[in-house]
């Protein structure tokens, strides 16, 4: 579900997901089993060919019997799902609309693949659902730390304790993290679960 108004302009806001009727064909990427949303979308599939790529074990199990899509690719994890998505996007034609459903880490990695093949924002709709865990980009060493649920995290690259900001980069698909105790070494606020 989309959060309330973001605290910072760069933080994405996700609108309720609808099919884009201007599209000639459609590709739905599912990285979390949001039942009400998926049932609603698949009960009224869009005009034009629909392909679905699932990148989540529970959704793969449940959506296996769906008949709304002309093409159904069932993968049980994100990395396989992203590979399948790329192989479809690689061969796809103008007129395609891409719908990305899942946690931010998954949908922004998928959006990055689409951008590599020349898709622009009017062709892509994203919707955040499932875990709120954040991908965090270290502004010091440029390493990515994924699945971050806390306000502070140790960078997977340089080990600095990073504060997870709301500042989001669409290009990197990640929130910015900076060293929390750079000015006063060792002075850190308590660690809290902020992104369940």
């Amino acid at each position: 579900m989309s959060a309330a108004a973001p605290s910072i302009k760069s933080q994405p806001v996700y609108r309720p997901l609808e099919w884009d009727t201007a599209g000639a064909s459609h590709l739905l990427f599912v990285a979390a089993d949001d039942r009400p949303l998926l049932d609603r979308l698949l009960a009224a599939p869009p005009h034009g060919e629909l392909a679905v790529v699932v990148a989540d074990p529970i959704a793969a199990e449940r959506l296996g019997k769906t008949t709304a899509a002309a093409q159904m690719v069932l993968r049980h994890d994100l990395s396989d799902g992203l590979k399948s998505l790329e192989s479809i996007v690689q061969k796809a034609h103008m007129g395609l609309r891409l719908y990305l459903v899942g946690p931010e880490d998954a949908i922004w990695q998928a959006a990055g693949i689409a951008a590599r093949y020349g898709m622009l924002s009017p062709e892509i709709r994203l919707f955040q659902t499932g875990t709120k865990a954040r991908p965090v980009f270290c502004v010091h060493c440029r390493a990515m730390t994924r699945g971050v649920r806390t306000n502070l995290v140790d960078c997977s690259g340089c080990g600095r304790t990073l504060f997870v900001r709301d500042h989001f980069s669409r290009r990197l698909g990640a929130y910015m993290g900076f060293q929390i105790d750079a000015e006063e070494p060792g002075v850190k606020p308590p660690v809290e679960v902020a992104y369940p």
Binding site: G23, A24, G48, M94, L120, E123
Partner: peptide, 10 residues
């Protein structure tokens, strides 16, 4: 182009 699903950005 619009009828064929091309977005105006392209």
């Amino acid at each position: 182009a619009r009828d064929m699903g091309w977005p105006d950005t392209h």
